[in-house]
Amino acid sequence: MHVIVCVKQIPDPALPGELDPTTNTLKREGKLILDESDSYGVEMALQLVAAAGDGEVSLVSMAPNDEVSGLRTALAMGAAKAVLVSDPTLAGADALTTAKVLAAATKKLGDADLIIAGTESSDGYTGTVPEQMAEVLGLPSVTFAKTVEVADGTLKVDRQTEEGYDEVTCSLPAVVSVTAGVVEPRYPSFKGIMSAKSKPVENVTAADLGVESVSWAQQIVSVEDAPAREAGEIIEDDGESFNKIVEFLDELKVI
């Protein structure tokens, strides 16, 4: 079984985000890391391939400046190879362009039985790329997967819904987006980290993939500060502060 995982490499979400003052897009300088949202997809793919008994996991990523740190993490976890699309003409690309580029990049890796992505990235979180990729590739898809299983060439997914979950079956090949927490991502072993350094990563541009007309029909016109919410009264608990809460709830007439 061949599983391709889309892995986004992002600025560390623990650091405060910053906008580029000229383009108003998110600054993506400095070291990028594997988006935690995609570590679940990588783990899921490795488990599915292990359960199938043969096959491999490969990766696609689009990131600026030939950035590979996040890809190396996923390779260290156990993926075999990767395609990286890095191209200055893609800076600030919208989700649709990203999906077209990633869909084309998967073709570089040969036929896949399954393509896995996160339900949404940690930095852009449009949550649209996986479903857009499925449409570009003409594939069925199951989004918001909580569990994924492949049996007799059919995909079985428990899909998160607003009220609970649905059991969904799907033909292969297909695109699946997985929610955070579906599996426990493994830590790369020392051996994994060492071997990741020599695993193949193919660098390509949009033109190499035959993705023409790289442009997008949206523009940021301005950025403003949101009206700040004022902090109210902060008190140290002296053993009686619950009374303050009771008073407050009383004033608001909720009790």
């Binding site: 649709l96 949550g127 996986p130 479903e131 857009q132 499925a134 449409e135 607003e162």
Partner: peptide, 24 residues
């Protein structure tokens, strides 16, 4: 709506029509 189904319908349609999406 930025819901599970809203996102999925919009994403598929964006490719069918070749239109960008603005989200959230």
């Amino acid at each position: 709506p930025q819901s599970y189904e809203g996102r999925d319908v919009m994403s598929r349609l964006s490719v069918k029509l070749d239109r960008t999406v603005l989200t959230n």
